[in-house]
Amino acid sequence: MADLTQEQWQEQLKNDDNAVIIDVRTDAEFEEGYIPGAIQIDIFNGAEFLQRAKQLDPQKNYYVYCRSGGRSGQACMLLNSIGIHNAYNLKGGIMEWQGETIE
């Protein structure tokens, strides 16, 4: 897992053809706005999160965010523990996101 600053995350994501964005917030938080292209997997729903995580392609690069960076850090560690080695945590989460969002 790597903690990336907003700038690092955006730059790396922009140049990555193998990228998947994962939003680990709740349904209600997701509906308030999300980063374009993100798929939502709520980490608070532990069993479903793990089940869906195990279906992810371990060859892809996962850019993970939450509200402030805490839950997404946990999510990256979980992804690492099931064999997904390229998981990138967005430090500061969507609260500090300067890029585009969909509301």
Score class of each variant (00 low, 15 high):
Ala2Trp: 05
Leu4Ser: 02
Glu7Gly: 02
Gln8Ala: 13
Trp9Tyr: 14
Trp9His: 07
Glu11Asp: 14
Leu13Phe: 08
Asn15Gly: 04
Asn18Gln: 15
Asn18His: 13
Ala19Val: 03
Ile21Thr: 01
Val24Lys: 06
Arg25His: 03
Arg25Gln: 10
Thr26Ile: 01
Ala28Gly: 02
Glu32Met: 10
Tyr34Lys: 07
Tyr34Thr: 04
Ile35Gly: 05
Ile35Leu: 03
Ile35Ser: 01
Ile35Val: 13
Pro36Gly: 09
Ala38Ser: 15
Ala38Lys: 03
Gln40Val: 02
Asp42His: 03
Ile43Met: 02
Ile43Gln: 05
Asn45Asp: 15
Asn45Arg: 09
Asn45Leu: 10
Gly46Pro: 00
Ala47Gln: 12
Ala47Leu: 12
Gln51Arg: 14
Ala53His: 07
Gln59Ser: 14
Lys60Asp: 09
Lys60Phe: 07
Ser68Gln: 10
Gly69Val: 07
Gly70Ala: 15
Ile84Val: 11
Ile84Gln: 10
His85Met: 14
Asn86Asp: 13
Asn86Thr: 08
Asn86Met: 10
Tyr88Val: 05
Tyr88Gln: 08
Asn89Asp: 14
Leu90Asp: 09
Gly92Ser: 07
Gly93Leu: 09
Gly93Asp: 10
Gly93Ile: 09
Gly93Arg: 04
Ile94Val: 12
Glu96Asp: 13
Trp97Gln: 05
Gly99Ile: 06
Gly99Tyr: 05
Gly99Met: 06
Thr101Lys: 10
Glu103Ala: 15
